[in-house]
Amino acid sequence: MAGKLYQLMSRMNLARNRSSSSSASAVDVPRGHFAVYVGESRKRFVIPTAYLKQPAFVLLLKRVEDEFGFDHRCGGLTIPCTEGDFTSIVYGMSSGDH
């Protein structure tokens, strides 16, 4: 799993570097964070890369990979769950409930 996440993060970084149109949105992602798009409306969340070490977040990514794969042609990592579910998972990690 770690190897696939590393490849995904590398591809996201390469795509960001190649596209001048996405460089404006890349500016608002601080070092040590990455952007994901959640739900049908593709709401953008910027989250710490440290979450990649959290079992709940890794499990979520594994489920997304198993069901949908990581080959997203529309750019960015898309997590197809509700914004409420995603917020609950992220809030649990940030409050120490993991």
Rank of each mutant, 00 (worst) to 15 (best):
H33T: 06
K53N: 10
V90K: 08
R63M: 08
K4A: 09
S41I: 15
A2P: 03
K53G: 07
R31Y: 15
P48Y: 02
V38P: 02
F34L: 10
H98W: 07
I89N: 06
V46H: 03
A56T: 04
M12G: 05
V46S: 09
L8M: 13
K62I: 01
G76K: 01
A56F: 01
C81Y: 15
G76Q: 01
T49N: 06
F86S: 02
A15C: 07
Q54V: 06
A24N: 11
S20E: 15
F57K: 03
C74S: 14
E67Y: 02
F57Q: 03
S19F: 01
L5I: 11
S20K: 10
L59V: 05
Q54S: 10
R73S: 14
V29P: 02
I79H: 00
R18V: 13
G84P: 03
G96L: 09
F68M: 02
D71E: 09
K53M: 12
V90Q: 04
G92F: 07
A15L: 08
V29E: 06
S20P: 09
R42T: 06
P55W: 06
G39C: 15
E65K: 03
V27M: 14
R11W: 04
M1L: 11
R16I: 04
A50D: 14
H33R: 05
S19K: 02
Q54Y: 03
D71Y: 05
L77C: 02
Y6D: 12
S22N: 08
R11F: 14
P30A: 13
R73K: 13
E40F: 14
L59N: 13
L14H: 03
H72Q: 09
S94G: 08
V90I: 15
R44N: 03
M12E: 14
L14D: 06
S25F: 10
L61T: 02
S10H: 11
G76R: 01
A56N: 06
A35S: 08
V38C: 09
V36N: 01
A24C: 08
R11Y: 13
A56Y: 01
S95Y: 11
L60T: 01
Q54E: 12
T82N: 06
Y37K: 07
F86N: 02
G84W: 13
P55L: 11
